[in-house]
Design a protein around this nucleic acid. Structure first.
Lengths: 388, 388
DNA sequence: TTGGTTAGTTACCGTTACTTACTATAAGAG
DNA sequence: CTCTTATAGTAAGTAACGGTAACTAACCAA
């Protein structure tokens, strides 16, 4: 490792510390947070200020004795991160600045299940143009597209996205052909993993199992604030964990997957309700069929609990976060989940299992996508500075 | 990060590169391996030579034209790593040098299931004394004790070790009271995780799921050569993944654990054979009962395969390594495992699932323990040098 | 002997962060 | 109003680190 890497590392540390602090911080506070010395922090901050990644605020009155601090914040509107989202019922675009503040958000609703890549790509290009045209002079760090399906290892091709009826679709290549995307750093990402990233923004450094309901069932494994990718980038695919070998046929072609039992998709299939029924109504309808809400929670919660407990045992985690359509029914689901987890999770031996609801966010995957687009700046600020 | 950390990091990189090379290497080769420049490598090597962590060999004849290299190897016999092993039927001690070469190995066989900590501790102290007394002048990097059970997060207390009938045993504290252990850097470790570490020595940087049979069933999760610890250090506990909710009672008190179906312990319980029967004989006896060897493999392989497939899906791994008593029957088990894995593992979509047998090692946990004891030197050579 | 090739060293340089000491600006005590 | 104390931030000099360029060392082949 070279000395220049040291600088890169420390710039990154300082930038992340400012972003993660929540409130404006002083150079002195950063020194304490990062373990670096005051003069070093001053120099690093200077560099980040000149690059426009940080800004100094007005010197506020000191609450305690001593010289008042010069508050530092992540820059507003000097760099943009763009998140795009592809879902069966909508496409969306979100533009944020480095601090995650929303500058622009637009959704286009419609039936995109079965739509061709080109249709989707052209709508996304339109959304992107509308978002960026009033901001032509502001550099874009990157663009990340959330996709409800499994991606190739290079994150360029959608291998399968059952909700969209997509298979082996070269999404990134198609987008890059369009003028709107020309020259941009473009990646795609799995919606569950991107939603997990949004959750990480709310719980920096935490470890948890993330369960995300979005028609099917997805998830993510978060270890100390880092989302596990795995060999192909498919880690956390909880929906295709086997519940019953040789059991019900799943959309993926396998048998006995969790998704075939405990997903919105599976419930809807049994009730025959329309495709866009709200999860609350779906649960209510199922409850009517089973003659009690508890029975619904049992039906969903038992298999879900076993999968969660088993995954938690393998990973040695003690917290699970429920997101997507599991969030609204999290409170009702909790008793069943807790019973199963207490019975099967090793972590129950040393303390209560954490069953938490995802921090509210209308479009977690979209937010996560924008954050992912900005990640290169946080990871290596010096490289970004050199190129601008 | 401070500049001294840079030196520490690079020293560590060079030391690991020499150790991992397998054969003696030149400074020039190290420069290529590590990405550092020749002068830098020379300086770092100089430091490691002076500390006695590396040694220069005889300048061998060059096989190609040019100046012959000065071969560098990890030092023999200047630093020691001690591994201890506690098992139901034996206690053992292994002393290696920094390169992992065995300098001393001794086992004491006996029935230690149900033995008190003090009994075990005093035998271990005897083994340790016998191992180290002829080497009083050589510094010991550390001592690591392998335990067949679950440890507390600080790795000092054995929370439960069913084979030993231990529960909440403060092993490390007890050992440290004995003069033999005075002043040594002492830790304990789970046997499966330590066995996995031995496997990592053979497959540097690999990712795999490690399944370890040792009376019960243990395991480990290895991600790019690093063993996942998890929140409490219990990651990879495959034996207590639930196969059948409400199923057979497991030794751990839960119901339906994999261990209750597919372990040596479970098989032995059904056949009524003595406690120390060889796995081969146990399988043969069970085969007689079921009237075919295939039936035995089905019985063990089905639940095992489902757990492996599910774990691999959550972690997105594509290789599983069979160790312990699963190693001798790996070839026979493979067809069943492969069938289940092909049916349920996502990774099967992009390539064959790797089912491998652990690289042969009589006492993998013991070897791993000694390697773990040496780890601090590899991780921060400068700190070691400063203190010696 | 000479040129080619690879290994390793030397001397010097630029970068990085640290140390020490300083200035700046406030609150509170007397 | 002044002095003390506390906190924020800066300036100048230093030490440590790795890189660069050019060198020497040791071998082979012709």
């Amino acid at each position: 490792m070279q000395s220049s890497h040291l600088r890169e590392h420390n710039l990154s540390t300082v930038l992340r510390a400012v972003a993660g602090a929540g409130a404006p911080v002083s150079r002195a506070a950063l020194a304490k947070l990062t373990g670096l010395t005051k003069p070093t922090v001053s120099k690093l901050v200077q560099e980040l200020l000149e690059a426009g990644l940080l800004v100094e605020g007005q010197q506020a009155a000191a609450r305690v004795s001593g010289r008042p601090m010069i508050p530092l914040t992540v820059a507003r509107g000097t760099v943009l991160g763009v998140g795009l989202e592809v879902a069966a019922d909508h496409l969306a675009c979100l533009v944020t600045d480095l601090g995650g503040r929303v500058l622009h958000e637009e959704s286009r609703f419609g039936a995109f299940a079965g739509a061709s890549v080109d249709e989707v790509a052209s709508v996304l290009a339109g959304l992107l143009d509308a978002a960026l045209s009033p901001r032509r002079d502001v550099p874009v760090a990157g663009i990340c597209v959330s996709v409800p399906g499994r991606l190739s290892t290079d994150r360029a091709t959608v291998l399968s996205a059952p909700n969209l009826a997509w298979q082996d679709v070269p999404l990134v290549a198609r987008l890059q052909e369009l003028p709107a995307f020309r020259g941009a750093a473009l990646t795609a990402g799995n919606d569950s993993m991107l939603a997990a990233r949004t959750e990480v923004l709310r719980r920096p450094g935490a470890s948890f199992l993330f369960l995300h309901g979005e028609t099917g069932i997805g998830g993510a494994v978060v270890l100390e604030g880092r989302i596990l990718r795995g060999e192909h980038g498919w880690a956390g695919e909880l929906g295709h964990v086997t519940i019953t070998p040789g059991g019900e046929l799943c959309r993926c072609g396998r048998r006995g997957c969790l998704e075939a039992y405990a997903s919105y998709h599976a419930l809807r299939g049994r009730t025959g309700l329309p495709e866009d029924v709200r999860i609350e109504d779906l649960v209510a309808a199922t409850a009517e069929r089973l003659q009690s809400r508890e029975a619904v929670m049992e039906m969903i919660g038992r298999p879900l609990g076993v999968v969660l407990a088993n995954s938690m045992n393998v990973l040695d985690l003690s917290t699970v976060v429920l997101s997507g359509y599991f969030a609204p029914i999290a409170a009702e689901l909790e008793p069943v989940l807790r019973e199963v987890l207490e019975a099967h999770a090793l972590t129950a031996e040393v303390g209560p299992v954490g069953i938490q609801r995802s921090a509210a966010d209308a479009h977690p995957a979209l937010t996560g996508a924008a954050a992912t687009a900005l990640e290169p700046i946080y990871a290596s600020p010096a490289r970004w500075i050199d190129r601008h």
